[in-house]
Design a binder for these strands. Structure first.
Lengths: 215, 215, 215, 215
DNA sequence: AATGAATGAGCTTTCATTCAT
DNA sequence: TATGAATGAAAGCTCATTCAT
């Protein structure tokens, strides 16, 4: 069906290492979404990928490293794209930049069920696993600082004397996390677009001259 | 004279049963906080409780049921107390009621590390475990409806024509979840009091005539 | 049949830890003798012992530790009994003491097939396993020194001016090792009694006034 | 003109085949000496040889056959050279022949660490592996018979009425085995030259008119 | 009601072997 | 001939659960 499978399902074909790794990571994401972190087994992952049991250890050495690679796969993409928005100088104005951030945080790509499931699965274990915790901290100094900087610029531009950039950034970050979580757990109750409206509302309250509640 | 009270000293046996259960649930909470959901074993739980290996199955039948009981122990307490605030008619005014909600959500008891760890550990698995999901949904119809009702009342009282009670409630719920999560993962970066300030800020933006950003 | 088995083979009976451990060590010895060190699996050992798969890890933590315990079981017994002969002051004379050593080294108990098989199985790996090596070194300083002392006393007593106690001891130790090995590998070619005659011959050559070649 | 020699450059292909095999056998010896028989994996052997993983199976069909070939490589060399000494008629006298045997058995080439390690690694498994056992039996009828014959000749020549050629041969064989083993396991305690002195002592005791203890 | 030795299914991991290239 | 990615049987280990005591 796809480019990875021949008509003969049993044919063994060597593929570039990176391709196999991504294939396995994708399968791991699906497994996490379907069965939770505790339900992930090498057998399930490799079956999901349509490959043999031994292949995951061949490419990742251990289950732990496969899981870590999966977490990194999900977070690296988000961090990279978010950073490019926060650091960009190509937006016509600050309002457009914030608007882009908002669109990005609730885009289909970012809120994809599998990714969210991976994200929160690891967060649930993060407290007791320093390695997970480090990777999970999307509010790392860089990210939070960049956002605070952006909000500070908006504040100065718009003369919102009573608004605190740092608190607003921390709030936005937490709000997005919470909205993702609620959307993941109960997508019916909080569909993606409603989540985005809530986030927009938050920014509109903080920066009424820049962001309007209605879209 | 129920079975719980009797002059005969032997009748107190009925009490120890509940005591044992709570002892085991407390030990489970500690284990989850220390080692994550995946690190919980019957041996660790019973050792932590200072009891024998077999006792958990004796009182809870299975590990799954012990975990469920632990999750319920944590959520039931929260839900009960939150509900009593939301349904109370004893507050002098709506502002005081919201203030109480805010104090409650960021009280030391609610944000206790062990409880938060349990909460998010299960949330991480909730997507794939309907049973967990059901218990985790603190934004169940009741809770969300009560909060929406409260906010609606405030809106009518304060004449905030542009504020949507439902969105504001969904936002508050998500914001609290996100703040808890960030506080749990990185308490240094987001201490409890800062989290509360952020939440207060949110409510102050929505209801400026009722809630002030400064405390 | 034995005291360890009930008529109902499936009955699960808790036994003192030491009894179970010895049972498992005995089974391990049999497995090593039958299939070699590389043929030892936890499944084979526990089946041989008539117990369940998990029990070896329960009592020994790991396969490695079970193997080590088995090696120690075999060597400790030998070392203890040999030492008691070498250090004894109860023999009427030195000739009797050496005679006792000889009888001991080729007694049925010491040359028992299972023990020898364990001994040489580990020696084969000893070169690359420091832990095995340490335990295997029966010619440890104590043992070799004691034997050299005994031979020195004989030399002085018998006036063998040309005999070197140290070399004779090293030779006896090596000869016994070699005889054991040949007896183990080809018992037909070198039965136990022939092996003992060879060893006796060696000692008779060294100490003709004390030991006679014929028995 | 056999297939091994030809003016056509392509015919040398027949040689590399043997070269590859020896390369792999040498690598196997190193692996056994370094990690023991149980630590030998095809991956390690081929890496050690600087070749690709598949090549060992290509040339030896299976791991078992590679191991067997390695054992044979080590024993065949020994057996051939020992036999040539025992069967030679070129020595000026019997004493010189025995002297040659002694020098040979403790030559650097024979006692090379890698070879000894291989030898005893297989001996450790020999009890349970008839194939190994057959190859390991250096005291095969031929060898032992030849040595007994040599000793018998010495006995007749020297008039040692009380010496038994068969027992003395069995003793020499066992002593050499034991000395090798002790030298392998603890080369510090029993260096090669000391081992040879012990063996010489043995022969000097048996045949004082032919062999002198001092060298 | 309580204990903890015993069980065995299920997991991760290793590695000889295969085979498309 | 040679390569090394892929396979999957077989191994060690973990741990929820059972049950004789």
């Amino acid at each position: 069906m796809t480019k990875n499978s021949n008509s003969d399902g049993k044919t063994r074909r060597a593929l570039p290492k990176e391709v196999r790794k991504e294939q396995l990571i994708r399968a791991t994401m699906k497994c996490i979404a379907r069965s939770g972190l505790s339900g992930v087994t090498m057998a399930r992952v490799t079956t999901e990928a349509g490959l043999s049991l031994g292949i995951a250890n061949l490419h990742f050495e251990s289950k732990e490293k496969l899981l870590l690679a999966t977490l990194q796969y999900v977070t690296a993409e988000y961090n990279r794209d978010q950073k490019s928005i926060l650091e960009s100088r190509d937006y016509p104005n600050l309002a457009a930049q914030i608007e882009a951030l908002l669109q990005f945080d609730f885009s289909a790509a970012v809120t994809e069920k599998n990714k969210m499931a991976v994200w929160f699965a690891f967060l649930g274990e993060a407290k007791s696993r320093p390695t997970y915790q480090r990777i999970c901290s999307r509010q790392d100094s860089t990210s939070e600082a960049l956002m605070t900087g952006l909000f500070q610029a908006v504040i100065e531009e718009g003369a919102y004397p009573d608004t605190n950039a740092e608190l607003t950034a921390a709030g936005y970050i937490a709000l997005v996390d919470g909205l993702w979580l609620n959307t993941l757990v109960a997508p019916r109750r909080l569909p993606r677009k409603k989540a985005r409206r809530v986030a927009r509302q938050y920014l509109a309250s903080a920066f009424p001259q820049h962001i309007s509640p209605e879209f």
